[in-house]
């Protein structure tokens, strides 16, 4: 099956800064494709290139199998997008904004459809208000309404939860899941937060300094069996030997007198804890983290980690 969006060997340099470096990927129909990377990794630049906002230095972009460039802008008909902030004309109402952008979508969009998308994003009843009076969350939802009004196959959402409060984030998340499940949209979504992507995406790509680090279905990359559980105990020299002779040794990743790390499905933690107590270990803490997250945090900077929302 032809991918909706395919990118091949895409590169872009701004002055001396290499924003995207030989990037290739493909997004198939029905996928929710997570684009993960810290700020400045090249997510936004890639999305902008796919939308014709930024012109690549080299490489190609295919939309539904046709090569996309500045003279084939009609291909953008099948895409709806929010790039960074969902900025709208503040002096116009939500409805007017929606109408304007729908009129430019290259597709006839009926008033009924506009009402329908307002309903989907939950802005019904507020469409006559000026956008300048909207909250950030409402603007974000209007942005989604604009992006999907002309029934594009692919939605490109660049950091759609940016600037939202926790409730807004939760709403946005369920909206995205619903767009995928109930409305059959293919969605490309970017974030600098793993758990954001993890909760909505079917596929995932990690971008770092413009390069693809890893890519694959989320259930593979985030296989629960690869969760790392770290146990700290009061120093216990004998525990290592006990462990080696037990069944838990197959999960052990790291063993020392006061710190043990296991790679296993986190459902095993209660059993592990029980065994540790029976073996005479004085457990101080148990924490688990997916190895992928550790990996992601390792490759991204401390700054990115500091942004982590718990």
């Amino acid at each position: 099956m032809t991918p909706i969006l395919e990118v091949s060997n895409l590169s872009k340099t701004f002055k001396t800064f290499k924003a995207v470096d030989g990037l290739s990927f493909a997004i198939g129909k029905g996928e929710v494709y997570g684009f993960l990377g810290q700020n400045g990794a090249g997510k936004s630049t890639t999305m902008r290139m796919a939308l014709g906002l930024i012109f690549p230095d080299s490489g190609s972009i295919f939309i539904n199998g046709s090569e996309f460039n500045n003279s084939h802008r009609h291909l953008l008909r099948s895409i709806g997008a929010i790039i960074e902030r969902p900025d709208m004309y503040g002096y116009l109402s939500g409805w007017e904004n929606l109408k304007i952008f729908a009129a430019l979508s290259g597709t006839k969009v009926s008033a009924a459809r506009l009402h329908e998308v307002l309903d989907i994003v939950g802005l019904k009843g507020r469409e006559k208000d000026k956008v300048s009076a909207y909250s950030q969350g409402m603007k974000q939802r209007l942005g989604i309404a604009v992006a999907m009004a002309h029934q594009p196959e692919l939605l490109i959402l660049d950091e759609p939860t940016n600037g939202l409060d926790p409730q807004g984030i939760a709403e946005m998340r369920s909206l995205i899941i619903s767009l995928s499940k109930d409305h059959g949209k293919t969605i490309m979504i970017s974030s600098h937060l793993l758990h954001e992507i993890e909760q909505v995406a079917t596929n995932m790509l990690i971008l770092h300094k413009g390069k693809k680090i890893s890519e694959g279905p989320v259930h593979q990359l985030l296989n629960p069996d690869d969760t790392l559980t770290e146990v700290t105990i009061l120093p216990n020299e004998g525990l290592g030997a006990q462990l080696a002779s037990s069944a838990w040794t197959q999960y052990a990743d790291h063993v020392s007198a006061e710190r043990l790390v296991f790679r296993m499905n986190p459902t095993r933690i209660p059993d592990l804890n029980k065994w540790l107590v029976e073996a005479g270990a004085q457990v101080q803490s148990i924490s688990s983290k997916h190895s992928f997250e550790t990996y992601f945090l390792n490759i991204t900077s401390d700054a990115a980690a500091a942004h982590r929302v718990i």
């Binding site: 802008r73 900025d87 430019l104």
Partner: peptide
Amino acid sequence: NIGTLRLLLTRPVRR
């Protein structure tokens, strides 16, 4: 400045 140019230019409209 207000950011709408971005959205405007993701539409299938020739610049």
